[in-house]
Amino acid sequence: MKDFIIEEDLLIIDGDFAIKDSDQQNLEHLLLSQKGSYKEFPILGVGIKKYINSPDATSRLRLENEIDKQLSYDNFFVKTLDVNDLQNIKIDGNY
């Protein structure tokens, strides 16, 4: 999917908005955002920060389920999802 690219600010190239492949950016925003962050879609968002410091397996299963559900809401087809290492979550799939 192609969309505007946001780094620390909206990326501008040659005086125009940069439009590039945005799948990685979309995944990052979805994982970091809380429910209610997007006013048009109030149930969208994983809120991963609340799961990061939780060491138990139940939280990881909830996180995996929440990520899968939220990606499905965003029309992302998940092939594989691995949340065993919270510092390196692996998501394979496509829009």
Rank of each mutant, 00 (worst) to 15 (best):
Q24H: 14
I91E: 00
I67N: 00
E40C: 13
Q87S: 06
L81W: 04
D14A: 09
V46M: 05
L86A: 04
I89S: 06
F17K: 12
A18F: 07
I12E: 06
D21E: 15
N53V: 02
M1C: 10
I12D: 00
D92K: 12
N84R: 11
K50T: 12
G45D: 03
D85K: 07
E8H: 13
N75Y: 04
E28R: 15
I48N: 00
A57L: 13
L81F: 02
M1P: 06
L63F: 08
E66M: 01
D82W: 07
Y95R: 11
D16F: 12
Y38D: 12
D16G: 14
H29M: 11
K39S: 14
F76T: 02
I43M: 12
L10T: 05
D3K: 13
R62K: 14
A18W: 04
P55F: 03
I89H: 06
H29G: 10
E64Y: 03
L71R: 04
P55L: 10
L81E: 03
S22A: 15
I12F: 05
Y73A: 01
N65C: 05
P42M: 05
K49D: 14
E8P: 08
H29E: 11
D85T: 06
N88T: 08
I6D: 04
L71S: 00
Q25H: 04
S54E: 12
H29L: 12
T80I: 04
K49C: 06
E40T: 14
